[in-house]
């Protein structure tokens, strides 16, 4: 990742070609050094300059999380460093929440969860935040949620979408179990649609069909687009993929 110099930090939300690569470089160094205050200042400053939150999520947080994974896999950073950096990113994401520029409410609800023993929750949280920004009411349950609890909440609140995420290939069977549990509950023509995503779904683009989901998206941006139509029409867009 490119290292930033003092002049690289000029950005403007009015420009559609703005590059956050230098911000991401500086942010990565900051979180690896464990400087929470600077990390939060850096991204809030970018947000205040008018850069959309979704772009900061994708071009800074997501890029840096991927880079952390690569560095850890190659043993160039310790597990402790990865935990430290990830915890700072979760803090930074929370700090941006009160800067969200929400769309008007669209009257749609989502339940979002990682099922089984799945601990990777940041990708799903991004998906939930993107929908929230688009005017949805999202019930984000995070990591390691029992399938039964997800299903019960989805039907209790009358969710339009259940979003399920896994990063670990070994949890694909849990996603499949969860999809089956939701399908067992739902009446023909009613009940929530199922959206899936996460690393294995990107590695094998037909996996969403194998687990029996209604939709798949490879990223938070794709997810919001793919299901976005639901906000305006009630017609089914079953089986659609972005």
């Amino acid at each position: 990742m490119k290292k930033s110099g003092p002049d690289d930090r000029t950005f403007s939300g009015n420009s559609t070609t703005v590059s956050l690569a230098s911000v991401a470089g500086e942010y990565l160094e900051t979180i690896l050094a464990g400087d929470r205050r600077h990390a939060v200042d850096l991204v809030t400053e970018v947000a205040d300059s008018g850069i959309p939150i979704k772009q900061i999520y994708t071009d800074v947080f997501q890029q840096c999380q991927f880079e952390l994974g690569r560095l850890w896999e190659e043993n160039r950073i310790t597990v402790a460093k990865e935990h430290l950096a990830t915890a700072i990113t979760q803090l930074a994401m929370s700090q941006l929440y009160n800067r969200f520029d929400f769309a008007d409410r669209v009257g749609k609800k989502m339940v979002a969860a990682c099922v089984g023993g799945e601990l990777h929750e940041i990708g799903l949280r991004m998906v939930a935040d993107f929908f929230e920004l688009d005017g949805w009411n999202t019930h984000y349950l995070g990591a390691n949620t029992p399938i039964r609890e997800v299903v019960e909440m989805a039907f209790d609140i009358g969710a339009d979408i259940v979003a399920l995420s896994t990063s670990m290939t070994f949890n694909v069977e849990k996603v499949r179990d969860a999809v089956e549990a939701i399908r067992t509950y739902r009446q023909p023509g009613g009940g929530p649609k199922i959206l899936v995503g996460g690393r294995p779904f990107n590695v094998e683009p037909t996996l969403w069909q194998y687990v029996g989901a209604d939709y798949f998206a490879a990223s938070a941006t794709g997810a919001a687009e793919s299901v976005g139509k639901l906000s305006h029409h009630s017609a089914s867009v079953e089986g659609e993929r972005r």
Partner: peptide
């Protein structure tokens, strides 16, 4: 245990991409 769950999860998925990734 991880290997067992990976294979149980994706044994029926046609194509090698997921196992190749592992």
């Amino acid at each position: 245990e991880m290997t067992h769950r990976v294979v149980a999860s994706v044994a029926q998925v046609p194509g090698p991409a997921l196992l190749q990734d592992q």
